[in-house]
């Protein structure tokens, strides 16, 4: 079966027809050529495909594209960009929180959500929240450090904020992440 869907991805509206079994990950990579979301298990076990749907992290490999109809989606490409990085990206850079970086987009998006929900997480809270994101290079220690550092840098870090939502389309086509 085919579905007409409207996806707002990084603030940009896309109308398309998708088959029932098509996953959000397949649409992002295959149709929209957004390669920041990556597959590494295909069954919600690694977090490499993490994408924000209406501000919450989902495994896009197991999230049907049809279900995303009418929703707002943020991928790593929409979170920040060179010159205007998200604080979590800045912190990942400063703390060298990656090696091959295959896991990095998923890690960054998950961490950004964590900090929206909990602006000052403890080490254990970070590990717990991010436990579904695997890093085979095992940069876990640096990632925890980076998330802690970013916690202090989040705008309005003092109070919990609402879920991450894409803002209006900007001139260069990038959404305003949070």
């Amino acid at each position: 079966m085919k579905h007409d869907v409207t996806l707002t991805v990084n603030g940009r509206v896309h109308r398309m027809v998708v088959e029932s079994h098509r996953t959000l990950l397949e649409v992002l990579r295959g149709e929209l050529k957004l390669f920041g979301a990556r597959e590494s298990c295909g069954m919600s076990l690694c977090g490499a495909c993490t994408t924000l749907v209406d501000g919450l992290p989902v495994s896009s490999c197991s999230y049907l594209a049809a279900r995303a109809n009418g929703r707002s989606i943020i991928t790593i490409e929409g979170l920040g960009r060179p010159g205007a990085l998200h604080p979590v990206q800045e912190a990942f850079l400063a703390h060298g929180a990656f090696q091959c970086s295959y896991c990095t987009p998923g890690m960054v998006l998950t961490a950004a959500c964590l900090l929206e929900e909990n602006p000052a997480p403890s080490v254990d809270e970070i590990k717990e929240y991010m436990a579904g994101n695997l890093c085979r290079c095992a940069s876990y220690g640096e990632i925890v450090e980076a998330v802690q550092a970013a916690a202090g840098q989040m705008p309005g870090a003092s109070a919990p904020r609402g879920p991450l939502r894409a803002g209006a389309v900007q001139e260069d086509g990038h959404g305003d992440g949070c």
């Binding site: 390669f35 920041g36 979301a37 990556r38 991928t75 790593i76 490409e77 920040g80 960009r81 060179p82 990085l85 990206q89 990942f92 850079l93 400063a94 060298g96 990656f98 970086s101 295959y102 990095t104 987009p105 960054v108």
Partner: peptide, 19 residues
């Protein structure tokens, strides 16, 4: 020295073969 490719990696822009 920070990684020369760092900015490409935190923004998800590095190319892997599957891209």
């Amino acid at each position: 020295v920070p990684r020369v490719e760092g900015i490409d990696k935190v923004t998800g822009h590095v190319t892997f073969v599957d891209n």
